[in-house]
Simulated assay, not measured.
Amino acid sequence: MSRLAQRFAHLKAEQKKALVSYVMAGDPTPAVTVPLLHDMVAAGVDILEVGLPFSDPMADGPVIALAAERALAGGTNTLDAIEMVKTFRQKDQDTPVVLMGYLNPVEVIGYEQFVQIASQAGVDGLILVDLPPEEAEEFDAILAKHDMDQVFLLAPTSTDERIAHVVKQARGFIYYVSLKGVTGAATLDTQAAAERIAKIKQATDLPVGVGFGISDATSAQAMGQVADAVIVGSAFVKPFAELSTSEASAKAVEKVKELRAALDQL
Results as ranks from 00 to 15, higher is better:
Lys16Gln: 13
Ser2Pro: 15
Leu48Arg: 10
Glu254Val: 09
Gly181Met: 01
Leu79Gly: 08
Asp60Asn: 10
Gly75Met: 15
Arg70Gly: 12
Ala13Phe: 00
Asp39Gln: 14
Ala118Cys: 02
Ala43Leu: 03
Ala136Phe: 05
Ile214Lys: 03
Met100Leu: 15
Gly51Trp: 13
Lys168Ile: 04
Ile174Arg: 05
Tyr102Leu: 01
Gln116Thr: 14
Thr218Ala: 15
Ala194Ile: 01
Thr33Met: 11
Val108Pro: 04
Asp27Val: 09
Ala262Arg: 01
Asp60His: 06
Ile197Trp: 08
Asp264Leu: 11
Tyr176Asn: 10
Ala18Met: 03
Ser178Ala: 09
Leu36Ala: 04
Glu242Leu: 12
Val20Glu: 05
Gln169Thr: 00
Asp264Trp: 07
His10Val: 05
Asp39Tyr: 00
Glu49Trp: 06
Gly61Pro: 08
Val41Thr: 07
Asp56Phe: 09
Glu69Thr: 14
Ala252Val: 06
Phe212Lys: 10
Leu11Glu: 01
Phe139Ala: 03
Thr29Ile: 14
Lys145Met: 01
Gln221Met: 13
Gln90Pro: 00
Ala203Gly: 05
Gly26Glu: 12
Val123Met: 08
Glu195Lys: 15
Pro57Val: 02
Arg3Leu: 04
Thr187Leu: 13
Ala164Met: 03
Pro57Ala: 07
Ala217Arg: 08
Ile163Met: 02
Leu126Ile: 15
Thr78Ala: 13
Thr78Phe: 11
Asp149Gly: 06
Gly125Met: 13
Lys251His: 07
Ala222Trp: 07
Gly61Leu: 11
Val63Lys: 05
Ala9Asp: 14
Ala43Val: 00
Val32Ser: 10
Arg3Lys: 12
Val45His: 04
Met24Lys: 07
Ile109Met: 14
Leu153Gly: 04
Asp140Gly: 01
Ala235Cys: 00
Asp94Lys: 15
Thr78His: 13
Ile109Thr: 13
Met100Ala: 10
Lys91Phe: 10
Val256Asn: 05
Phe236Val: 06
Ala250Thr: 01
Asp228Phe: 07
Ile117Met: 12
Asp130Ile: 06
Glu49Pro: 09
Leu19Ser: 03
Lys16Val: 01
Tyr111Gly: 00
Asp46Gly: 02
Phe236Met: 12
Ile174Thr: 02
Gly74Tyr: 07
Ala68Met: 13
Phe236Gly: 06
Glu135Lys: 06
Asp46Cys: 02
Ala43Gly: 01
Ser244Gly: 15
Val106Ser: 09
Leu188Phe: 07
Lys180Tyr: 11
Glu134Ile: 01
Asp39Glu: 15
Val98Gly: 09
Ile109Asp: 08
Leu263Gln: 03
Val34Gly: 03
Asp228Gly: 11
His165Asp: 09
Val106Thr: 06
Ala198Ser: 14
Val115Pro: 02
Ser178Trp: 02
Ala193His: 11
Gly44Arg: 11
Asp80Cys: 14
Ala220Trp: 03
Gly211Cys: 13
Gly44Leu: 02
Val167Pro: 12
Lys201Thr: 02
Ala71Ser: 13
Gln169Pro: 00
Ala59Ser: 12
Ala121Asn: 04
Gly44Thr: 03
Thr187Lys: 15
Arg3Asp: 11
Ser158Leu: 03
Asp205Lys: 13
Lys91Trp: 09
Glu14Val: 07
Gly110Asp: 06
Lys16Gly: 04
Asp94Met: 10
Ala155Leu: 01
Ala144His: 11
Leu103Ala: 11
Ala170Gly: 09
Val50His: 02
Ala5Met: 09
Phe152Glu: 04
Gly122Ala: 05
Glu49His: 09
His165Met: 10
Ser244Pro: 08
Pro35Phe: 06
Thr190Cys: 14
Met84Glu: 08
Glu134Pro: 04
